[in-house]
């Protein structure tokens, strides 16, 4: 999936939601009145936890333990066990404030399973449980030490195969198009002297401008000029129209407009309109000549 902007300068034109039911809330609730803690893995080394404590639970805690409650996340290593609250391999505490409501935690060991208790730590060291999270297995880090007899492979061969599989490119080459494109954009911007968007100088801004040529860079005074031609008109909206023998699509109101770069030249522009039933036609001819000369006075 690639869903990004076509350019770095685009902003959404989405306005405020057209809400035809103004009495309905348009905001996300801050909390849902739950007392819970959730744990999510982010990568082999980090997990994320968020929690919520119901207001009445909170005030009961304050009533019982006072205003200065020390909230902690107790992180348990529960690898390969059915955790009952006291049989963890080990645990460590992270002190959090009531305001945090979420925390990124760095686990001390890879390839383990973890669970957290949200609780209170009392001055005497006692831990009062508020809520227990789900258990997560962290994403496996590194190649496995286990081999399958039926599919056995020599260590050296396996190392070579892992290399052939491009292990060192993981996370480098799989990055997203949008990021690649944004980096390219930033690089381009840093290299471009002109700011985007380009000044809408004219339709002929495609040509190298006088200001770009070495000759004029030496001098501070410069002039730049070019020409373009607009051929326009109107006829019956259902008529068919040709310009120089080529058919031209009419706007719904019968008008038309052609615009093009005009170099030094002499051109004939026949315009012909035919009525829808083919019985009538009108023709207009133009002859246009452009001839340029330069006069540089120093």
């Amino acid at each position: 999936m690639t869903k990004t902007v076509s350019s770095g300068t685009v902003t959404s034109h989405m306005q405020a939601n057209k809400n035809i039911f103004p009495n309905l809330s348009n905001d996300l609730p801050k909390n849902y009145g739950d007392t819970k803690v959730v744990l999510l893995p982010r990568d082999p080394f980090w997990a994320y936890s968020y929690w919520e404590i119901n207001e009445s639970v909170k005030s009961n805690l304050i009533k019982e333990y006072g205003q200065n409650i020390l909230y902690v996340l107790r992180v348990y290593d529960v690898t390969d066990i059915n955790f009952n609250g006291s049989n963890a391999h080990k645990f460590f505490d992270i002190t959090v404030t009531e305001l945090n409501e979420n925390w990124y935690l760095n686990v001390p060991e890879v390839n383990r399973d973890w669970c957290v208790d949200l609780g209170i730590k009392l001055a005497d060291g006692r831990f009062i449980l508020i809520a227990r999270s789900n258990t997560i297995s962290m994403p496996h880090h590194g190649v496995s030490t286990v081999t399958d007899e039926q599919w056995a492979i020599l260590q050296k061969e396996f190392e070579r195969l892992v290399k052939l599989s491009g292990i060192e490119r993981i996370g480098k080459s799989s990055f997203d198009v949008s990021r690649l494109m944004r980096e390219r954009w930033e690089q381009l911007i840093s290299m471009s002297s002109a700011q985007m968007p380009f000044s809408p100088k004219s339709i002929s801004s495609f040509r190298p401008t006088a200001a770009d040529s070495p000759e004029t860079k030496l001098k501070s005074f410069w002039l730049q000029a070019d020409t373009e031609l607009i051929v326009y008109g109107t006829t019956e909206s259902d008529a068919s129209l040709t310009v120089e023998g080529k058919s031209v699509k009419l706007n719904p109101d019968g008008s038309f407009s052609l615009r093009f770069y005009l170099p030094d030249c002499e051109i004939k522009i026949p315009i012909e309109a035919k009525s829808a039933d083919g019985t009538m036609s009108k023709t207009i001819h133009f002859e246009v000549k452009r001839e340029s000369s330069k006069n540089n006075k120093i």
Binding site: Y32, P41, R42, D43, P44, E52, P139, D148, S174, D176
Partner: peptide
Amino acid sequence: QVLTPAASSWGDKGYYEVWLNSTNDWIYK
């Protein structure tokens, strides 16, 4: 061969960080 694949994604750094970081973690609740 039968094996248990490792948790992973094809996003930046190979895991879940693109979808779980300080810019977007508020959505999960």
